[in-house]
Design a protein around this nucleic acid. Sequence first.
RNA 1: GGGUCGGUAGCUCAAUUGGCAGAGCAACAGCCUUUUAAGCUGUGGGUUCAGGGUUCGAUUCCCUGCCGACUCACCA
Length: 490
Amino acid sequence: MDDLITRLNDQEQQRYQKMVRLRERGINPYPLRTARTHTARAALDAFARGEAVTGAAFAGRLVALRDMGKLTFAHLQDGTAKIQLLVRKDVVGAEQYALLMKDIDLGDFIGVTGDLVRTRTGEITIQVATFELLAKTLSPLPEKWHGLKDTETRYRQRYLDLLANETAREIFIKRAQIVQAMRKFLDGQDFLEVETPVLQPLYGGAAAEPFVTHHNKLDRDMYLRIADELYLKRLLVGGYERVYEISKDFRNEGIDIKHNPEFTMMECYQAYGDYTTMMDLVEGLYGACALAAHGTLQITYQGHALDLTPPWRRVTMRDLILETSGVDIYTATDLPALLRRIAELNLKVERHPTWGKLVDELFSTFAEPTLIQPTFVTNHPTEISPFAKKTLENPNVVERFEAFAANMELGNAFTELNDPLDQYARFVEQQTQRQAGDKEAHQIDLDFIEAMMHGMPPTGGLGVGVDRMVMLLTDQASIREVILFPQLRS
RNA sequence: GGGUCGGUAGCUCAAUUGGCAGAGCAACAGCCUUUUAAGCUGUGGGUUCAGGGUUCGAUUCCCUGCCGACUCACCA
């Protein structure tokens, strides 16, 4: 403990000395119990309604002190609101008053009792009768006016950000409201919330590199899940018709303004639905969450006015690529033909191109930057969609959509593939990609195939990035602003 | 992983061509009975991210490393 104390800076040393003085006078700086009768919000509201609030007990953090000599104004912040304190030396007594002035610091938790009054300026204020220390603070808090701006400190010591920056506190309240609305919406549609393994012997359900870990007693490597898909579908084989899971997924990829290695995903599956069912679901879900966070479907994101009112625009990937790049992927239907068209556009080609990957590249480069208003982009290449059913008209593309708004992908859904033999063939194709060097291609999951051989109903499935949704609904450009403890470099 | 910019007191920020490292808030000692970024007087507080180099002298210039932001690559 001594080594901790010697590491304290000068302000922390002073606070520590105050704590020692308090103990010497028989005052426990960390008492066991708090007697509270009112939150700041409840008391302010009651008084504003004209009710008298007398002999009330409050608890919170001391966040401002204005010492006028024989009286002091202060502000107490609790979990609900900030409320002004008026402490008069002639009311609390010289000894107590001196305690406040000498040994209680900004940031300390205190409990006060008193009556609510209005000051001359009209502010509803607790006229303090008694006060006591509830918890001593050793480190000074960030400055009251400029707040805390240093991004590294804001993310690494999020508690300081939440204390100093009102908007940060509000974002995570909205996040909770959004997730709550999501659950309520899905529960209301008779979806069953389930939990599936995070720790998996094989990973799958998305194209991504996993985090690898090791089980010591079993002496085998395990993977943190990259998606919930393959386990949730097993539950449809098991007879549940509508299931969903809201959970962390993990992808071992770069970190940037829209990607965190662990992120929250909502996946749901609905038997006897298809991808159009999922479009209706996305519109309903986003609507419910937007209403919970905003009370309206008209939102502003990074300067863009967005209208979430259904129906959202629905456009095929082919039409969108044709419209934005001039390339018709239904004319250039094989790899050599598409490569020739792409060469004309001077577009860079990756090392292991397939027709599907090039289509995706064309889409990302030309079409995606144009997608501001909510849009369902449909009918992706079969090659990059190993879990979706092919369309009747064209086996090169599948019944799939990705939802976009403000150039951000918001969700991904399929008419789920339930043909075990086709599924096996897709896995084999993925394996080929894998052997060609694509680390993100799927491994063959025979256990999943076996499940599907027992029969899976026709199903619509959907994945929605919860962090992305919160970004959109709180107007935040960076995913780090909507994750309490985001991954930083080290 | 590449590029650009940045890291100075507890917090927010200054510091001229390379010449004693400063301010506001916070802290400390005082004054003040209606303030609310209270005010007034005085005081203390620095591994200038770390290590090396150039120089009489480095917060400043150079190199290496660490950390962050943005950006590119990557990313269903």
